[in-house]
Design a protein around this nucleic acid. Structure first.
Length: 303
DNA sequence: CGACTTTGACCTGCGC
DNA sequence: GCGCAGGTCAAAGTCG
């Protein structure tokens, strides 16, 4: 596909902002580039026939992103596999409008004391006598990742984060940091690590969606970029997706948008990717890829 | 003193 | 069942 067809992922091609660079393939599935190009840019596609898709889309008003399939052979990610537990028969979304389970709910709350942020882990004094309960299978919230070229590990995104862990990553000289939103009612987490291939690239993975406003940015200030983006994330009705209403926007993009707004040294967005089926990604090279391997298909990384 | 970071220990899932 | 690696907890330390 020609480079001229590449579209700014935020503005849909209506901005000349040079700081946005999306690297990847582009395959459009709609005639109206303005309405569909972003979805295509990210390899997202719709599968209206999927019950899981219908459920997520209809329940999580204004929150769901398309469920990525191998559209145009670009990104083979799938939010469903990260958020749907077949055994439990539930769909996990953290939208405050939606009653849902979450990754924090993976432990049977009827048997565990402690706050939600503890993940149900008992106090250390109780660990030794902990009786292992067979709860429902772990449910992971929808995740998305983006790569930015930045000297700063932890990009300001308008939310406040508390670091709760750091781990060395196998085959990577750079540690992975774990952050949790400081809002006690918010279960959003993010992981940050540098690419071992290119240390200048920061890979940030968000899990869940904020149930509150940003700290630094009044909610009402929606730029034309976001408005444009929101329009683009609304699928053509012909594909079975209800359009986003005027007041909704893709919340999963807020951190990214805010990051760009607030960063003094503007990071360069390299790529966005949504969650995908881990089972399908556990190839032999997965171990070497860290968050990249977790979230970003190898094909796109080499763009 | 509260908020936040650091860091070792522990828990859990998965592959072999 | 075992070992490994990722993820999380929580006490201790740091900072404003």
């Amino acid at each position: 596909m020609d480079d001229k067809d590449k579209v700014d992922p935020i503005s849909g091609g209506f901005s000349s902002d040079p700081t946005w660079t999306f690297q990847g393939d582009y395959s459009f599935f709609g005639n109206d580039v303005r309405e569909s190009s972003v979805l295509s840019d990210f390899g997202w596609n719709f599968q209206p026939q999927s019950p899981a898709f219908d459920r997520i889309d209809s329940d999580a008003v204004g929150t769901s992103v398309s469920l990525p399939e191998v559209g145009g052979g670009v990104v083979a990610n799938d939010l469903r596999t990260g958020s749907v537990d077949e055994a439990a028969g539930d769909v996990s979304m953290s939208n405050p409008l939606v009653s849902s389970s979450s990754s924090e709910d993976r432990v049977d709350t009827s048997t565990v004391s402690g706050d939600a942020a503890s993940g149900g882990k008992p106090p250390s004094s109780e660990r030794a006598v902990k009786v292992k309960k067979k709860g429902p299978k772990k449910i992971r919230q929808p995740r998305f990742a983006f790569m930015t070229k930045s000297e700063v590990d932890h990009l300001e995104d308008g939310y406040r984060w508390r670091k709760y862990g750091q781990k060395a990553v196998k085959n990577s000289p750079f540690p992975r940091s774990y952050y949790r939103c400081t809002n006690s009612k918010c279960t959003v987490k993010k992981r940050v690590e540098r690419s071992c291939d290119d240390p200048t690239i920061v890979v940030t993975t968000y899990e869940g969606q904020h149930c509150h406003h940003t700290v630094g940015f009044p909610r009402g200030l929606i730029s034309h970029h976001e408005a444009s983006y929101a329009r683009q994330l609304a699928a053509p009705p012909s594909l079975g997706r209800p359009p986003l209403n005027n007041n909704s926007r893709p919340q999963f993009l807020n951190p990214l948008i805010n990051s760009v707004r607030s960063s003094q040294s503007i990071p360069q967005l390299l790529m966005i990717s949504t969650d995908h089926d881990h089972k399908s990604s556990q190839g032999s090279d997965r171990v070497d890829q860290g968050l990249l391997g977790d979230m970003v298909p190898p094909r796109m990384r080499n763009q």
